[in-house]
């Protein structure tokens, strides 16, 4: 019966833009320049990527700090199969990476070819995109930094 019901496709395309504000804007500008910025929270710990307002107290945060381009895998998942729209050809790892000097981890991809090559605690480093535009994809991916931490 349901085959008889009318149906029609809808593809929505519509333009949007964003205002980033002073903190998030500085983070993306930093990526374009090849550096990663975090921000010092009310408790002195560094949040990266940075946030405008303290996650606990809500106070406005202003103290941007540069963190490292190397970090530690805090947990990970494995992507074994190529699918359309993925940022890397599979296989690769999705991982939470805590950059040196930061107290929070960010989700990104790690370019390794088998699960033998990644584990929690591994050291990884940023592989920058060839052309940086001020986007999170300026970090093309992470790759093993060589040697365990």
């Amino acid at each position: 019966m349901t085959d008889d019901l009318l149906h029609a496709p809808l593809t929505i395309e519509f333009g949007f833009n964003r205002t980033t504000g002073p903190v998030v804007g500085a983070f993306y500008t930093g990526l374009r320049e090849g550096k990663v910025l975090g921000i010092k929270g009310a408790d002195g710990r560094v949040v990266c990527p940075p946030v405008e307002y303290d996650p606990t107290t809500g106070a406005p945060l202003t103290e941007m700090v540069e963190v490292g381009t190397e970090g530690t895998v805090t947990t990970w998942s494995w992507v074994p199969t190529d699918r359309e729209g993925q940022v890397l050809p599979a296989p690769y790892a999705l991982a939470l990476v805590q950059l040196d000097g930061a107290d929070t981890a960010m989700l990104h991809v790690v370019d390794v070819s088998s699960t033998d090559q990644i584990s929690t605690g591994d050291r990884v480093k940023i592989r920058w995109a060839d052309e940086r535009q001020g986007l999170l994809t300026d970090i093309a991916c992470f790759e093993p930094a060589g040697g365990a931490a």
Partner: peptide, 18 residues
């Protein structure tokens, strides 16, 4: 509202089927 980040005038004018 931030009207500047899009075009509210037309945002409700999509030809959504039926």
């Amino acid at each position: 509202q931030q009207q500047s980040v899009s075009e509210a005038m037309w945002a409700l004018s999509f030809p959504i089927p039926f």
